[in-house]
Simulated assay, not measured.
Amino acid sequence: MIRTASIMYLFPEHYDEYAKRHDELWPEMKKELKAHGAHNYSIFLDEQSGQLFAYLEIEDKDKWMQISDTAICRKWWDYMAPLMKTNVDNSPVSTDLKQVFYLR
Results as ranks from 00 to 15, higher is better:
24 E>F: 02
37 G>A: 00
8 M>N: 05
22 H>W: 12
64 W>E: 08
30 K>S: 06
99 Q>T: 15
20 K>A: 12
11 F>E: 03
64 W>D: 04
38 A>H: 07
11 F>M: 12
54 A>Q: 14
5 A>G: 14
54 A>Y: 01
16 D>N: 08
76 W>H: 14
22 H>V: 07
81 A>W: 07
49 S>T: 15
88 V>T: 15
61 K>M: 09
65 M>Y: 00
31 K>M: 07
67 I>Q: 02
53 F>M: 11
88 V>A: 15
10 L>T: 04
4 T>Q: 11
30 K>F: 02
54 A>P: 01
12 P>A: 10
28 E>L: 10
86 T>V: 15
102 Y>P: 00
70 T>H: 06
47 E>F: 02
100 V>L: 08
73 C>S: 14
35 A>P: 00
96 D>A: 13
103 L>S: 08
8 M>P: 00
30 K>M: 06
21 R>V: 12
41 Y>P: 02
55 Y>S: 08
77 W>A: 12
60 D>M: 04
104 R>D: 15
70 T>C: 10
92 P>V: 01
91 S>C: 07
47 E>N: 00
53 F>I: 14
74 R>T: 03
98 K>G: 05
29 M>K: 09
39 H>K: 15
67 I>S: 01
13 E>N: 08
61 K>P: 07
12 P>G: 12
62 D>Q: 08
74 R>V: 10
40 N>L: 08
20 K>L: 09
67 I>T: 03
61 K>C: 00
63 K>T: 03
28 E>S: 02
93 V>H: 04
69 D>C: 04
5 A>E: 08
19 A>K: 15
79 Y>W: 10
2 I>E: 09
61 K>N: 06
53 F>V: 07
44 F>R: 02
3 R>W: 11
83 L>T: 10
90 N>I: 05
98 K>V: 14
59 E>S: 12
72 I>Y: 01
10 L>N: 05
13 E>L: 01
24 E>S: 12
93 V>G: 01
79 Y>K: 14
93 V>S: 05
9 Y>D: 08
11 F>I: 07
38 A>N: 02
29 M>C: 11
56 L>Y: 13
40 N>S: 08
80 M>D: 09
12 P>Y: 14
82 P>R: 07
70 T>D: 11
7 I>N: 03
22 H>D: 07
22 H>I: 10
57 E>T: 13
29 M>T: 13
43 I>S: 12
32 E>Q: 05
75 K>G: 06
67 I>F: 04
1 M>V: 06
22 H>E: 04
43 I>P: 05
43 I>M: 09
78 D>R: 10
4 T>C: 01
23 D>V: 02
104 R>C: 12
52 L>K: 03
30 K>V: 01
45 L>S: 01
4 T>N: 12
66 Q>W: 00
70 T>Y: 11
81 A>R: 07
6 S>C: 12
59 E>V: 11
56 L>Q: 09
95 T>N: 04
98 K>A: 13
77 W>M: 13
6 S>M: 06
59 E>M: 00
72 I>R: 06
58 I>S: 00
32 E>H: 00
45 L>A: 02
20 K>C: 02
54 A>D: 09
19 A>Q: 15
93 V>K: 06
36 H>Q: 00
4 T>E: 10
68 S>G: 15
72 I>F: 06
38 A>L: 07
17 E>L: 14
37 G>C: 01
66 Q>M: 09
1 M>R: 13
29 M>D: 03
35 A>G: 09
